[in-house]
Design a protein around this nucleic acid. Structure first.
Length: 551
RNA sequence: UGGGGCGUGGCCAAGUGGUUAAGGCACCGGGUUUUGAUCCCGGCAUCGGAGGUUCGAAUCCUCCCGCCCCAGCCA
């Protein structure tokens, strides 16, 4: 596509070096979401990175669900994530993987560490454990259970596993260093008791491995060579390495961290997105205002646009906030190329062309796209009565041609794909509101320049008043009024934009839009990009979502 | 404050001692245009600060300043 060589990021450099030095034979990456929510644009960056890396180096990428905490996880999320990754255009190696598939293996590795004297059952409760852990500036102190006998720990772990121990009373901990300046190394928890059914393993287990005890081992089992995660896990890397170094693993993966994506005027935290859904601030996870993959899809954003955007992002260790305008650029860029053109009048104002034969209707042909002839042409019914948008007419005839390239009394304008017309007279109702314009058309100007002396001020869109389809338009704005909804005091909820959804009813769309299908993008010329909403649209009522306006 | 990480134009960034300091977004001019769209042309920084090393530093050293992450039996 582009002949400009893209600079390589630091992870690509590491992989190249590993390949060159023979440290790895082929690349294996993974995208490891926890199925506790829907994927969002931030995940898209990680997905494009991980699957992209595998593609670039001829390796493979796994989709792995990190389902180590049954508390917040659900199969609903598993299915949604699978759909979203597919929609983004990626395919994983083999079947999706699950951390829960490795629970038995993890358990025996835990026993291994106990036997090696590197793990123990601790009976400190949560509060005590916090006290013993120390703080950022003070070292911690050893748990009184730290030197428990191996056999005893082994037996207690088994008791925990079968459900004979109460939640919160015991944990399995790695015996590392309570004096470590890295708090993550102060005897971290490997297993905690949760007498809770797991969405895949049911009630087989009463204990579940912690993220730290699970992640590196999952990577090792799958032969992941480069385990790429976000910056906040950097402090966990020594622990990741401690486990991979102290366990008899089938391979030794390595962790690399990059900066997660932050976008202004939106939130990208599963917790906050879930709150928006749970408190009904939005119409579900796939509300078109949500930065979720499903929301973007419903909004009409193409997966190509998401991919292009993600590829434009730097993979580095800086944590900046990307301007929403950058994402919007890629959305428009793709839609401009792919969206079919159509016309829709949001705020209809009737124009009667007095010199056009009454009862006559002709079919005009318009291009499906200005510079693509592979898209089918459209048929536009044209007659004596048409609609234009109210905002395309002004009574102020002093407006300069340059400033107002639309219709004014006594002047001409080109109807897109049709004739040049002139406005002659304004008709008002009893409240002095303009309800109709009487005008005239210039014969033989369809696809032809008007005669000398007639200079249209501009080109406006229109639709037949007698042969069109009605529809409602959902216009979306940013969900938040603040660039950084999370910043400052108060809740991000306080910064919700009350104007984020505006519904415009009874719009007039060109006839062909009656056959619009979900998943097809349209550009309503001079208005913006739209798509049929799968949730609100029905046979009787067409509903279109505005993906984004034109610049 | 202990540990880890990061600071290049309004935003995202490339840059790994010698280049006129890439590119994209945004913005501002101008041209084309039956979408005030697209497209095209042009404009737009001395690199957090201060010292130092060097013939030469955004790139190396020192000190300072600022921001982010870690004190869940979350991930």
């Amino acid at each position: 596509m582009t002949d400009i060589e893209k600079p390589t990021n630091f992870i690509q450099q590491v992989i190249s070096a590993d390949l060159d030095a023979g440290r790895v034979d082929s690349v294996v990456t993974r995208f490891p979401p926890e199925p506790n929510g829907y994927l969002h644009i931030g995940h898209a960056k990680s997905i494009c990175l991980n699957f992209g890396l595998a593609q670039q180096f001829g390796g493979v990428c796994n989709l792995r669900f990190d389902d180590t905490n049954p508390e917040k996880e659900d199969d609903e999320y598993v299915q949604a994530i699978i759909e979203d990754v597919r929609w983004l255009g990626f395919d994983w190696a083999g079947e999706p993987k699950f951390a829960s598939d490795y629970f038995a293996q993890l358990y025996s590795w835990a026993q291994h560490l106990i036997r090696e004297g590197k793990a123990y059952i601790c009976e400190l409760n949560a509060e005590q454990m916090r006290e013993y852990r120390g703080t950022l500036t003070e070292v911690g102190k050893n748990s009184p259970y730290r030197e428990r006998l191996v056999e005893e720990s082994l037996e207690l772990l088994e008791q925990m596993k079968i459900g004979a121990v109460d939640e919160g009373t015991m944990t399995l901990r790695a015996k590392i260093d309570m004096q470590s300046p890295n708090i993550n190394m102060r005897d971290p928890v490997m297993y905690r008791i949760k007498k809770m059914a797991h969405h895949r393993t049911g009630d087989t287990w009463n204990i579940y491995p912690s993220y730290d005890f699970a992640h590196g081992q999952e990577d090792a089992i799958e032969g992941v060579t480069h385990s790429v995660c976000t910056l906040e896990f950097a402090a966990n890397r020594p622990l990741y390495e401690w486990f991979t170094n102290n366990l008899p693993l089938p391979s030794t993966p390595h962790q690399y961290e990059f900066g997660r994506l932050n976008l202004n005027y939106t939130v990208t935290s599963k917790r906050k997105l879930k709150q928006l859904v749970d408190e009904n601030h939005v119409d579900g996870w796939d509300d078109p205002r949500m930065p979720t993959i499903s929301g973007l899809r419903r909004r009409g954003v193409t997966s190509a646009a998401v991919r292009e955007f993600c590829d434009s992002l730097a993979v580095a260790k800086t944590d900046g906030i990307v301007d929403l305008a950058q994402f919007e650029h890629f959305i428009r860029d793709d839609l401009n190329e792919t969206a079919r053109r159509a016309m829709c009048v949001l705020n209809p104002l009737k124009i009667t062309l007095s010199n056009y034969e009454e009862g006559k209707e002709e079919l005009l042909s318009a291009a499906g796209h200005p510079n693509r002839d592979d898209l089918p042409a459209r048929q536009l019914p044209f007659g004596r009565e048409i609609y234009i948008d109210h905002s395309d007419f002004s009574e102020d005839t002093s407006l300069s041609r340059k400033k107002f390239k639309r219709l004014v009394i006594g002047d001409y304008v080109r109807l897109r794909g049709a004739s040049v017309i002139r406005a002659d007279q304004v008709i008002r109702d009893s409240h002095d509101q303009i309800i109709e314009i009487v005008g005239s058309y210039v014969p033989d100007t369809v696809g032809e320049n008007p005669p000398e002396g007639i200079r249209p001020r501009g080109v406006i869109h229109w639709v037949s008043a007698t042969n069109s389809v009605d529809c409602d338009l959902y216009l979306y704005e940013n969900l938040f009024t603040e660039a950084a909804p999370d910043a400052g005091e108060g809740s991000f909820i306080d910064h919700l934009n009350p104007q984020s959804l505006k519904i415009v009813k009874n719009c007039k769309a060109e006839l062909g839009l009656g056959d619009a299908v979900v998943g097809q993008q349209y550009q309503f010329e001079r208005e913006g990009y739209y798509c049929l909403d799968g949730k609100h649209s029905s046979a009787e009522k067409l509903v279109f979502n505005r993906t984004i306006n034109l610049r």
